[in-house]
Design a protein around this nucleic acid. Sequence first.
DNA 1: ATGGCGAATGCAATTCGA
Length: 262
Amino acid sequence: MKIATWNVNSIRTRKEQVKQWLIDNNIDVICLQETKVIDNDFPVDFFTDIGYYTYIYGQKAYNGVAIFSLQPLKDIKYGFSEILSANIVNNFDEQKRVISGVINNMRIVNLYVPNGNSLGSEKYEYKLKWLEILKQYLTRIKHKYSEELLVCGDFNIALEDRDIYQPKGKENHIMASTVERDALKQILSLGLTDIFRKFTENGDYYSWWDYRQGVFSKNRGWRIDHIYLTDKLYKKAINCYIDINPRKLTQPSDHAPVICEF
DNA sequence: ATGGCGAATGCAATTCGA
């Protein structure tokens, strides 16, 4: 069984590429981020035509997450609000960044973590608060349900120096700062482990490359798209890798998909 | 550090991403 995560940077622009990739790679479940479309305009037929059940949670122009699965998912939860009380969630479900569902006693949580712009900015404060709410969300899910957890998506955080092409001097850089890394580590302390690192210890493996300055051809990227697993799943996983081939196509997403195999 | 690229909105120029 293959479960993938991919920030597609607009599903309407990328629908052909995503469809072909799903077929070519025999993907059972895919978690998408930055679909950038309201639910009514989502090209669902495109994917139901090739056998996928589609679960979408989008908004106009920005953000948006979705899960496609060859088997139907159970117990879909949209946003934080179906898990956490309104006074905790506040207005943090206005941006559509969280969707979750269950397959084979595994709860999949698909996330699009805010980018944060730059340290000290309003968006940075939003990112840190959002991560606090995420920690409460995952804590609640872990205690409320018996399922194993797979938490994946675009985290907009490179956890370690080996996850960045040029880590030197990035202690206060967005996506690499000590504060962001500590926030993510706190969340992972709930019992989640980066499955990519079970199979690959070296650096130079990235999942995002800026569109500008031809940095992809020089492999100057960041590994910010992750799949985290609870212990039983971590032991069961037989592979995890990044497929950089879609990033080589004409008009690509700036992110490449990450795949975990069980 | 900047924002040169790309997408959405909406039809030109701006906002946002990372």
